[in-house]
Design a protein around this nucleic acid. Structure first.
Lengths: 106, 106
DNA sequence: CAGATTCGTAAGTTAGTACTTACTGTAAGC
DNA sequence: GCTTACAGTAAGTACTAACTTACGAATCTG
């Protein structure tokens, strides 16, 4: 499954925080680490995971390395979720009707 | 963050498998465990995590306990992802134009 | 009522992971 | 060329979590 890594990547709070900061625009590793409660190497390791999950891309910019969000991994997760969305709504609707066949609880 | 547990819940492959089986319709714990490479108590523990994440609901049915998908947690994840979707696309588009300002690579 | 199903929980083990500090490599500035 | 800034990697540690077996509680069956 292609999205396996993407879910695992976003499961970690620190990684989600990094990802949310990148959503506000491309950042270098140092900029991302600044303000976070973890060390810069930790952020580097998190970025590696996000990159392998297809959630971010990076490019060298002099001595720095700039990361930004990659829509690819995000799109895979969205596609996976959408596969269940309709089924989930139907199952939920059926359950509601099973509990309340008369529709007395609008 | 409300969706924190939902991401962590779907990060585990076994839990995703359980979730996908539930997408095909409500099942009891025993039915879910059947065919999975883990024990029934393990499935019980996974269902507990999914339930706390708002991804499934359960109801007693005699001695058995039937689980089914709950759209709530799914919707929270979808909403979270959508917050970044537009930003991600824009950032990606800007990056492509930065790499290829003339549009020579269509 | 006794035995059989079905399921959740407790306890313990093991593997994975998120973090730290220390080190190495690479690009920029004097 | 030498120093400084930036970032990835290595090694080690501590914590979490996924799993197992064993057990207890609740319900159906004969």
């Amino acid at each position: 499954m292609a999205n396996a890594n993407a879910f695992a990547a976003l499961a970690d709070p620190t990684r989600r925080e990094v990802f949310e900061r990148l959503a506000r625009g491309p950042r270098s590793v140092g900029e991302l680490a600044q303000g976070l409660p973890v060390s810069r190497p930790a952020v580097s390791q998190h970025l590696k995971v996000l990159k392998e999950a297809g959630l971010v891309t990076d490019r060298p910019e002099g001595a720095r390395r700039v990361y930004q969000i990659d829509p690819q991994g995000l799109g895979q997760i969205r596609a996976w979720l959408d596969r269940f969305w309709e089924a989930a709504l139907e199952a939920f609707k059926a359950e509601v009707e099973r509990e309340d066949p008369e529709g007395t609880n609008p």
